[in-house]
Design a binder for these strands. Structure first.
Lengths: 167, 167
DNA sequence: CTGCCTATATAGAGGCATGATATAAAAGTA
DNA sequence: TACTTTTATATCATGCCTCTATATAGGCAG
C-alpha cells in the first residue's frame, strides 16, 4: 500500500482498487447529501415513508427496527409525520397495544414530488457534462447496476444480522 | 469483461437512460448514507473538518458559506467542535472581529479514523459479492470516476452561482 | 388475580439547523 | 472628530431528530 500514486488511472480496463471505490463512494455521498437532498423532511422520515409506501401499514417497533432508530425516535417521527398529514395511525383490532402506521395520499404525493425534484436536479447536473462524459457515466451505470443491486441487498441483510463489524 | 449475451438489456454497450442514471445514483446515495455514515459527528461537521484540513485556517463566515449553512449554525458547530478539541479558534491580529478556525491534531486523527472505518465497511460489503461482481463494480467505478468528479465540481460551482434552478 | 412480557408513550438531554437580533470592530463620510 | 454603515461573530428562541431511562397499558401464563 505504500507505493506513491501515479499521475492518473493507467488503463481504463484496469479494475479500481478498493481504496478507489471507497473514494468514489465518499464523493458520491457528498454529492448526494449536498445536491440531491430535499430539506423538507429528514432522511429517516423519507425512508420510512418509502417503506410504508412499498410494504403497507406497519407497527411502530417494526419501523424503528427497519430504519435502525430507537422506538421513542420512531414514535416522535410518526407523531410529526401525522401532524403533517403524511401518515395515519390505526388501532389494531387484534391487539390493543399496537398502532398500525399507514401512508396517506399526501405522503405518496410528497414521495413522488421528491423523486421528481431529485431527477430534475440530477438531469441539470448531467447536462453540465460533455457528451463523452455523459456517455461514460451512462455506460458505467448500466454495467454496474446488477452487481450494485446485489451489494445493496447484502448491505441491508448485514444490517439485520450483526456480522463481525467493529467501529 | 466477457460479452456473454443475455436476455436483459440488449447490449451492455448501450448507454443507460437519464432516468436509469438518476435511479442508480439515488441508490448509490442511499447506500452511502445508510451504510457508510459514521454517527459520531454530523455530515457538516465532518465536511468542515475536511475543509479545514485541506485548506488551512478559515473564518467562520467563509466556512458557513462554503458548507451551505447559516453563520449561527456554523458558530454553534465550531463551539461544539472546540469543546471536543477538534478545532481551535485564534484571533486575527489584523481584524479584531474575525476568528480564525483551525483543525487540531485530534481533528486530523478523527478524520483519518473515519476514513479507515468507511473503507473497512466498504471492504466488508464488497467481500459479500462474487469475484465477477467485484470486478464489474471496480471496472465501472474506474470508468466513471473522471466524469463523476467533473460532475461533483460542477455541482459545487452551481451552488455558488445561483444558476436557473427552482425548488 | 398476579406477575411478566410486549407495544407504545413520555420525560429530559443534546446535536443541528433556522431566522431575528445584538454586539463590537472596521470603514466610510460629513 | 463624530456619525453612519457595513462586516464578523455571538446570542436567543424555536423546531427537528436522536438518544437513554422510565411509565403506562394491553396480552398472556400460572
Amino acid at each position: 500500500m505504500e507505493y506513491t500514486q501515479q499521475s492518473g488511472p493507467r488503463e481504463s480496463d484496469a479494475p479500481a482498487t478498493r481504496e478507489e471505490v471507497a473514494e468514489a463512494l465518499e464523493q458520491l455521498a457528498f454529492l448526494a447529501v449536498r445536491h440531491l437532498t430535499n430539506r423538507d423532511i429528514s432522511f429517516t422520515a423519507a425512508s420510512t415513508l418509502g417503506r410504508l409506501s412499498r410494504e403497507g401499514p406497519s407497527r411502530l417497533t417494526a419501523l424503528a427496527a427497519d430504519e435502525g432508530v430507537t422506538q421513542p425516535s420512531m414514535t416522535q417521527l410518526i407523531q410529526r409525520l401525522e401532524r403533517q398529514g403524511l401518515v395515519t395511525r390505526v388501532d389494531d383490532p387484534h391487539d390493543g397495544r399496537v398502532v398500525l402506521v399507514a401512508i396517506t395520499d399526501d405522503g405518496r404525493e410528497l414521495l413522488a414530488e421528491r423523486r421528481r425534484g431529485r431527477t430534475n436536479r440530477l438531469a441539470e447536473l448531467l447536462a453540465t457534462l460533455s457528451p463523452e462524459d455523459q456517455q461514460a457515466l451512462a455506460t458505467a451505470v448500466r454495467a454496474a447496476t446488477p452487481a450494485f443491486q446485489r451489494l445493496v441487498e447484502n448491505a441491508a441483510r448485514a444490517r439485520k444480522s450483526p456480522g463481525s463489524t467493529a467501529s
